[in-house]
C-alpha cells in the first residue's frame, strides 16, 4: 500500500518541528525515532498502561493511540520538556524525594499524569489522585510512593 507522506508542523517542548510523516506512523514512534525523545515508552501499545503518556494541547494522552499526522498544528510536551536545562521541576523533585521510582519505566507517564492531576484539582484527595492515575500502570512500587509524591506537590502548590 502506498503511504503518501503528509507534511506536519507542531511545537514539541517549545520547539517548532516540521516533518513529512507517513500517515501510519504513530506519535510515539515519531517522538522516539524521529526526534530522539525516548522518555515516552512503549509497553502495551494499546492504551492500557500509560507508559507512552505525553501532553497534547494541555491534556495527557497515550501517544501510542495517536498518529503523528493528527498532531499537525498542536503543542506537545514530553517528559523531556518539564525540566529547565537540567533542573527538575517540582513534580520530578517530589518523585525523587519520595523514592517513587524503582525500574523507572512507567515514571515519565506517572509524572505527566501527576502534573495533570495538580492542574485539574485544587486539593485532590488520595482517592482522586488514585482515580486519575488509573490510566498508568506501575509493576514495581505498589503506587503508594507515587501517590505520596503527587500529594506532596498538591499540598505545597
Amino acid at each position: 500500500m502506498i503511504n503518501q507522506p503528509y507534511p506536519i508542523s507542531c511545537k514539541v517542548n517549545g520547539q517548532t518541528i516540521t516533518a513529512d510523516v507517513s500517515p501510519e506512523m504513530r506519535l510515539l514512534d515519531f517522538l522516539r525515532y524521529e526526534l530522539d525523545l525516548t522518555g515516552a515508552k512503549e509497553v502495551c501499545g494499546e492504551g492500557e498502561c500509560g507508559a507512552c503518556t505525553v501532553v497534547l494541547n494541555g491534556k495527557t494522552v497515550n501517544s501510542c493511540l495517536i498518529l503523528a499526522v493528527e498532531v499537525n498544528g498542536s503543542k506537545i510536551t514530553t517528559i523531556e520538556g518539564l525540566s529547565d536545562v537540567g533542573n527538575l521541576n517540582q513534580m520530578q523533585e517530589a518523585f525523587v524525594d519520595h523514592h517513587s521510582v524503582q525500574c523507572g519505566y512507567c515514571i515519565p507517564g506517572m509524572v505527566l499524569s501527576g502534573e495533570q492531576i495538580i492542574k485539574d484539582h485544587e486539593k485532590p484527595s488520595r482517592d482522586t489522585i488514585k482515580e486519575d492515575l488509573s490510566g498508568n500502570i506501575c509493576r514495581c512500587t505498589g503506587y503508594q510512593k507515587i501517590v505520596d509524591a503527587i500529594e506532596s506537590v498538591s499540598e505545597t502548590s
Partner: peptide, 9 residues
C-alpha cells in the same frame, strides 16, 4: 470510562 488519557481523546 477508561483512564484520563483515553477520556481526553
Amino acid at each position: 470510562f477508561a483512564g484520563v488519557q483515553i477520556r481526553h481523546r
